[in-house]
């Protein structure tokens, strides 16, 4: 039986792990723990992320036998992690979040942008003008204020940078529906960031 080593592909390690090689599974965890943690923070919260992490790898371990290599191991694991996050959020009684609707772009009766070019682009270089901690905190708060279905699509498509087709498959949606949700999320978040930049000294 081959011995697991750090040069082997995810899929080889997954096959070894499925046949009972604990060390192979530990190597896979080492490869993905950082990415799954970040995903969990983006889809749930820093408070929930450690539990999401454990639950994801527990589920993955239990279902290793079902991983057939039809997709990449990373895709399969992301899907498990996403489901753990979504179940967690749906199980928690969530207070209705303060909507970001007010940050959508505004148009006059002719369909022309109601704001001037200057006010529309206040957010350029926002991350160079606002300190890192504060921007991170505002970003988390903004994600929390998105409608749940928009957040899922936006996080997977734009923050995790998965292809639209893969997001669609993960969320059980048509690609057009994913684009629609990501677009609405971008519009709200753009307005939010632009407004934030406008209120800075």
């Amino acid at each position: 039986m081959p011995v697991p080593d750090a040069d082997q592909s995810d899929e080889t390690l997954a096959a070894l792990a499925a046949s009972g090689d604990g060390r192979a599974f530990e190597l896979l965890v080492g490869r993905y723990e950082g990415r799954i943690y970040r995903l969990a923070c983006r889809l749930t919260s820093e408070t929930d992320a450690p539990d999401v992490l454990q639950d994801t790898f527990l589920q993955a371990y239990r279902h290793l036998g079902e991983f057939r290599g039809a997709s990449r191991f990373g895709t399969w694991l992301y899907r498990i992690a996403t489901n753990v996050c979504l179940m967690r959020r749906r199980a928690a009684s969530r207070r209705p979040s303060e909507s970001l609707e007010s940050f959508l772009p505004r148009f006059d009766e002719n369909g022309t942008h109601a704001d001037t070019p200057e006010t529309l682009s206040r957010m350029s270089h926002l991350d160079e003008r606002l300190d890192r901690e504060r921007l991170a905190e505002r970003a988390r708060a903004a994600l929390d204020r998105l409608p749940e279905t928009y957040r899922e699509a936006f996080v997977l498509r734009d923050l995790e940078e998965l292809p639209t087709a893969e997001v669609a498959e993960t969320l059980g949606l048509e690609p057009a529906a994913v684009r629609q949700r990501v677009h609405r999320a971008r519009l709200m978040l753009r307005g939010f960031l632009n407004d934030l930049a406008g209120r800075m000294p």
Binding site: R38, D127, L159, E161, L193
Partner: peptide, 10 residues
């Protein structure tokens, strides 16, 4: 901007 701002390290 949001990707950079939410790139949490474990």
């Amino acid at each position: 901007v949001l990707r950079d701002a939410t790139a949490e390290e474990i």
